[in-house]
């Protein structure tokens, strides 16, 4: 097993996912299997290859830095689970 249960819990916290005890055990096994499988990449010699996060030909163009009409406050808030006074409402952060 590549991952310990403790590591699974740590990843879940980083990812902000509450998992049940069952899920933790299942993901420990499945993620370990997947990580074992992808480990084949580490045996491949990639020197001196540069990483490719962008595979497009060089043609990107940024738009002009001009103000433009965005969503209205009403539109921006229309899907909010909770809103008041034109703002998103969340549970208390500080006691």
């Amino acid at each position: 097993m590549t991952l310990t249960l403790k590591e699974v819990e740590h990843i879940a916290l980083l990812a902000r996912l509450e998992l049940s005890a069952d899920e933790k055990v299942r993901y420990q096994k499945q993620l370990s299997d997947i990580l074992d499988y992808v480990a084949q990449l580490q045996r491949l010699d990639t020197q001196p290859q540069e990483p490719a996060s962008d595979v497009r030909p060089k043609s990107a163009r940024l738009r002009e830095d001009k103000p433009r009409q965005g969503l209205s406050p009403e539109e921006a808030l229309c899907n909010a689970p909770s809103a008041r006074d034109g703002q998103f409402r969340v549970p208390p952060v500080l006691e």
């Binding site: 992808v38 990449l41 580490q42 491949l44 990639t46 290859q49 540069e50 990483p51 490719a52 996060s53 595979v55």
Partner: peptide, 13 residues
């Protein structure tokens, strides 16, 4: 993991 995957991606391209 991620860094190595991006390098192999460049090989695939």
């Amino acid at each position: 993991y991620y860094g190595q995957a991006q390098k192999v991606r460049a090989l695939i391209k």
